[in-house]
Write a protein that binds this DNA or RNA. Sequence first.
DNA 1: GTTCTAGAAC
DNA 2: GTTCTAGAAC
Length: 656
Amino acid sequence: MEMETEVSGEKEKKQIVVLLIGPPGSGKSTFCDSVMKSPHRPWSRICQDIINNGKAGSKSQCLKMAIESLKEGKSVFIDRCNLDKEQRSEFVKLGGPQVEVHAVVLELPAQVCISRSVKRSGHEGNLQGGRAAAVVNKMLRSKELPKVNEGFSRILFCYNDADVENAVKTYSMLGPPTRIMNFFKKVSAVPASSSNEATNDATTPKANEKTEIVRVSPSKKLGSVVPTLAFPSISTADFQFDIDKASDIIILSLVKAKASRKNIDSGRFFTFVGDITKLHSQGGLHCNVLANAANWRLKPGGGGVNAAIFKAAGPDLEAATRARANTLLPGKAVVVPLPSTCPLHNAEGITHVIHVLGPNMNPNRPNYLNNDYTKGCKILREAYTSLFEGFLSTVQDQSKLPKRINQATMSDSGAEDSERNKKYKGLQDKARTNNLESGSVDDAGDSGKKMSKGWSSWALALHIIAMHPEKHENVVLESSDNIVVINDQYPKARKHVLVLARQESVDGLEDVGSANIQLLEEMHDVGMKWIKRFQDEDASLIFRLGYHSVPSMRQLHLHVISQDFESDHLKNKKHWNSFTTSFFRDSVDVLEEVKSQGKANVESEAVLKGELRCNRCRSVHPNIPKLKSHIRTCPSQFPHHLLQNSRLLARPESSN
DNA sequence: GTTCTAGAAC
DNA sequence: GTTCTAGAAC
């Protein structure tokens, strides 16, 4: 759009081709007429119904006229139904360096369109009266919603009259230039819809956190889409990072970014005040990449930007995020392609969300830096660098990037980190040499892995059984309204069963809160009952009852597992460490924590990579076979910690 | 040579 | 989560 190209420092004012998309009676012509009342920009309405000397004409006539209008410097409305991709494709091709192509979709209820068409008289295309209903219905059956990958640089959906009114306003306002703002100024909260301008009044940063956005456009253009990143200030709200120090960092980062990368020009940055999830619909800005000031668990919720973005994107973003990473280290970023089904993708044209985690100065959150601003600034700088690199990778070729960047560790293992970065950078560099299209929706698809809710198909098995135990009678040992008990399909010990929670949306320990205390107690009791049953058969069996900190499979499940670990299915380090390190959270501890603090502590997945230690004497073993042969005969008592609070469940007569 | 791990694919 | 397998470790 004009305002966008101006603020990004480009001299040319782009013309626009707007394809109205909607059945007869959806208000296409009215839309055009309303916008054209505005004096700001010359428009030409190209209506197929009248193009032929007042009579209906052809698509090619419309195209021809569109080209002529564009030559005259006008922007054009393509006022025809444009209901499927094929009907639209020729018009989309009108886009180029000087011309953007937009879609305005009038998705009003069919009833509304039909009744309007039926009632109206003197319609240009003579579609009125009784015939209209049949035509509208037929058209709606074959309609195909537009996608960004058809070549639109912007798609606007209108579901009701208010949406239409807003859209009219947006297009009517095209013309007046937007001021380029001083970078990262503290700004007062301006209602998002009222203005793109930021005032310079300094007020409390927190109030503005959600609405303060900076935009970057690399100069390299791909087709008619200008890759654009919108990002909030990182670490300043929830993480209580001093905003002045933060603003110094980001300017430094930008200068550095500018110096090191020719394709980012710092002149293309500006600040926008508004809702980051409505940049397009409210702000009229086109940003295809959103940065999210994420939390380390990459979960929705919290406050501000993170909550807003996850809410606007819906479960699709959660799913896509899960497919890339489970957690994030401070200073790191992870690029998540948004599925085209996502509302943010469709309505706002967002193709990628980049989660960034900055340093934390908030004592109530993990990795609290205790006002160590030396360290904090370093991490913040790193965070912005990661963000820009991530953004660059979306401009470059996505498909060459690692499918999943594993940042599942909270530890400060520097060596491991730099190793991983090297790997990641290597792949990025490689990607840069491939001059492929950017931001294509299809890039987001990852090799056939179907993800309904962030879990691969294999990870849904427990969920499926928990939801419908009656369909899996062959594997279900016991079920009630709240729980299902099954044998672990690959038992890691002589006795290994799972108590599944049946409640929807409690996928793992991290989703558990005070509301689930009863459920946790029932799961615990059921687990205890099975332990008793097993020990009645074999009194020498010793059990632990607990959860994995980060489960591989969806649906909260309690492991009831004997401590012999005598099983051919126990094959690797991850298996062993997931049951014998702090990654395994004893049910008694989980219950106590949820009762006292409203949530359970979880251990980082990093511990799974640690040494192989005997679960009794804690001796270290070089590999799994050696470890296994040791534990068969280790005579030691279990560690003291496990003998407390009934963490270890043994029959009194068998002392170990 | 064999054993074992770790990463990719599923 | 498992399976498969290349190549590291021995």
